[in-house]
Simulated scan of single mutants.
Amino acid sequence: MTHEVFNRLRDAYTTGVTKPLAWRRGQLNALRRMITENKQAIIDAVAADLGKPASETLLMEIDLVLSEANFVRRRMRWWSARHPKPMHWLLQPAVGWTINEPKGVVLVISPWNYPLLLSLEPMVDAIAAGNAVCLKPSELSPHISHLTAELIERYMDTSAIAVVEGGPEETTDLLAEPFDHIFYTGGGRVGRIVMKAASENLTPVTLELGGKSPCFVDGTVSLAAAARRIAWGKFTNA
Rank of each mutant, 00 (worst) to 15 (best):
M60D: 12
H83L: 11
W79N: 02
P137G: 10
L66N: 12
L58Y: 07
M60C: 10
E101Q: 14
P137Q: 11
W78N: 11
H146E: 13
R73K: 11
N100G: 02
N131I: 09
N113Q: 03
A126L: 06
E153F: 00
R82C: 10
R82M: 14
W89N: 04
P86V: 04
L135F: 08
L66M: 07
P137L: 11
S55P: 00
E150V: 00
L58W: 08
L116Q: 00
M60L: 10
V108H: 05
G51F: 12
E150M: 09
E56D: 14
M87S: 13
R77H: 13
W79V: 10
S80M: 15
H146W: 00
D49V: 01
V106Q: 05
P102K: 11
A81T: 01
E101C: 01
G104Y: 05
R77S: 15
P122T: 02
S119T: 14
W112F: 14
A81M: 11
K52M: 10
H83I: 11
H88D: 15
D49F: 04
G104N: 07
L107I: 03
E61D: 14
P115N: 07
E153M: 03
H83W: 10
V95Q: 14
Q92E: 11
N113Y: 03
H146V: 08
V105G: 10
P122W: 06
S67E: 15
L66G: 07
G130W: 03
E68K: 11
M76E: 07
L135V: 08
P84H: 12
R74L: 06
R73P: 00
D63G: 02
M76C: 07
S80H: 06
H146A: 15
S119L: 07
A69I: 05
P137C: 12
L58H: 04
L107S: 06
A81K: 09
L120I: 02
L59A: 14
E56S: 10
T98L: 13
L147R: 05
N70S: 15
D63C: 07
P122R: 04
V124L: 10
V72I: 15
L118A: 03
C134R: 04
S141W: 01
P137N: 10
A126G: 04
I109T: 01
A94P: 00
V65L: 07
W89F: 15
E56N: 02
M76V: 02
L140P: 00
S80W: 00
W97D: 11
L107E: 08
A69S: 14
V133R: 01
L107M: 06
A149C: 06
R82G: 13
